[in-house]
Design a protein around this nucleic acid. Structure first.
Lengths: 217, 217, 217, 217
DNA sequence: AATGAATGAGGATTCATTCAT
DNA sequence: TATGAATGAATCCTCATTCAT
């Protein structure tokens, strides 16, 4: 979707544009983000952005897709298919949290797809985002059930949906002001959310999921 | 926060303004919603909106709070404290779903608080939104544990957080384009999401929660 | 020009409306003054203002004329025709200063007639404002010349113009931020303008005028 | 204070914008002047004005300062320090009158600084406007007194203040509708104010000032 | 006569996109 | 290819005035 010109410029400049765009869109949202400000932050001319992309919308879509690709690599890249279900799930959650901490902007972009007025982007992005994870989780659960490490009476689609729901809300709690406030209220945390607290919460979340998947005694 | 004038006009007009505002904000988002268009939809003059509220932002906040209050009444209003944990949770989910179906706009407004660029609203709304539910769920779980109907080894804050997370994602799946696409993908639904399908999914979701809370044999 | 209704209401209310109008117009200028705010300050309903006057413009004109009448009474009211030229001029300047101190709003309204965009008011007010003073000063000078107390080679119209110019600028220095800054710069005053300093400046100003009028030796 | 863009556009366009702005502000006043109308008169797009200045207020301030600078050059530019006091004062008054006739808009802007509601501009402009003239006049008078061409008993600050007051009122009479009406009334002029009449008045005004400064016999 | 809700034209400012250099 | 000045539609908010109560 981007123009050929985007591939002709130096990688460093391209990366700068994409990363600043991700940050700005994540900070302000699609409509409120300003192409002039983006150009300024990226250190390029306003007109140049239009040499790389046809429109703000194309830039936004590209940045989202790019971020989701980065996210997928970070989370699923180091995963060893030989691990059992439990280890793989833990890996996904921990790598996901690490990536979100390093690049909160991309999760913010993901959350934004559900925002009012951005339905048009959902049509273009959501499926390709969710399909990979849905397929992966279902396959994982099925294998677990086949090998007897996961309780047999599980409804796979349901369980995958539910695991991913927990994932989303946890990650959202790392980046969204609203979800942070909510987390503090639920977990009765008074001060700032420390990494330590969040890691403990993460461990418990993983353990909860594990406990639901484990076959009964 | 609204001006006195808002209370002085006829209830029908006030309700029309508030409900059209909720719908428009839910459809377009805060920034993209146009006060002129809202006035037109509500059947009042643009200037009148400013007789009721000091600014678009105040109107938005009021509409959000108003919607959250309506939601709370719908969900918790008909709840009987004598019911056991399971029935209460089922009630909350089913009433919540009914309310969201009747007034999807309010859930959309809730989701929007997590949107990029609307952090300012999170500071003003989130806590009062979440506190009620958090307190309620925790109290419910504690009572259940005390009476032996809920497994005793549960981490209450954690469980409340997790139940509410499931609730949020389920409700989001009723109103957000993105979450609908995601739901269809996870549940492998080909066509439209029918009420029947969603109700079945709801039942299973409730059952999942119940199963996690129930004491082991 | 005001409506009959204005005369039918209680004097206290009428005075309150007029005095608050004068203050508000003097503070904000004609266009920037807000009828709603005026109504609020005067303690009447917005609609009532339109029971008293046909329009903001009529109200403004009436307030100006009213203020100029008050000013004239204050300055020329206590003047004794038997006094000599010098005493009369001193009286005018001192009474003028006292009135302006008590009611700076009216002098501000006078200054505003020269403001950009208010030419329409000049046509309606200026002549009747200036005529009285011009006639008075000229008559005074002529009498002085006839009685030999004023130098005989004076150009009367010119002198009257010049005396009044000094008057205007002095009075402006009591109320206008710009003219206060200017006065401080010219008179090399460091801190605030005290009454004492201003009175000394007034005395010197009067003395300057006297010295120009006095016949040579 | 203006943006860099203002310096990058062609001088002709810049001059057009500034001169039309001066005229429009002088005609309508700050608040009543319309940026859209200004853009139309200057032959640029509304948005372009905001490429040159951050706001209407900055544009206004710049135009004022620019005009005051032009005025100073016109009045003090051709002045020869070797001239005696009387010739210098005459030069200032005559050059001032010529400039005001050529560019009445700038004097109108000066007068506006004293208008109600524009006190904010006074803080930012007045001092730098007045300081130059005040210093100049005082220096001139001191030199005259030192050389014996000006009467020795003069109070310098007072005299400078008074000379400049006369200057202001005279110049105001060239541009302000109110001051024109006032001048006609004082000088008993029936028809229009002709250049000839005004020049005669100017000569007499200069002569009056000279006569006050001259040492007694 | 008093009230204040309703009205809608008006005006400052923003910003995606274009295009001449 | 890069630049950034130019554009004008879009949008929030104000406020004099009206008129039903």
């Amino acid at each position: 979707m981007p123009k050929k010109t985007l591939q002709k410029i130096k990688a460093a400049k391209r990366d700068k544009v994409l990363s600043e765009a991700a940050k700005l869109f994540a900070q302000k949202g699609f409509h409120q983000a300003d192409m002039a400000q983006l150009a300024a932050r990226a250190g390029v001319a306003k007109g140049s952005l239009y040499n790389y992309f046809d429109s703000k919308e194309e830039l936004y879509l590209y940045v989202c897709r790019h971020g989701l690709e980065l996210s997928r690599q970070a989370v699923y890249g180091g995963l060893d298919p030989a691990w059992d279900v439990y280890r793989q799930i833990e890996h996904i959650f921990r790598q996901g949290a690490a990536f979100v901490r390093a690049h909160p902007e991309y999760l913010m972009l993901y959350l934004n797809v559900s925002s009012a007025g951005l339905e048009g982007f959902a049509e273009k992005i959501s499926l390709q985002v969710e399909k990979h994870t849905a397929d992966f989780l279902k396959k994982l659960l099925k294998e677990g059930m086949a090998s007897g490490t996961v309780r047999a009476d599980l409804e796979v689609t349901q369980a995958a949906f539910w695991i991913n729901s927990i994932y989303i809300v946890f990650m959202a709690s790392l980046v969204s002001r609203h979800f942070q406030i909510r987390l503090r209220e639920y977990l009765e945390i008074k001060g700032r959310l420390t990494k330590k607290t969040l890691d403990m919460h993460l461990s418990r979340t993983i353990e909860l999921i594990h406990s639901v998947l484990r076959p009964g005694p």
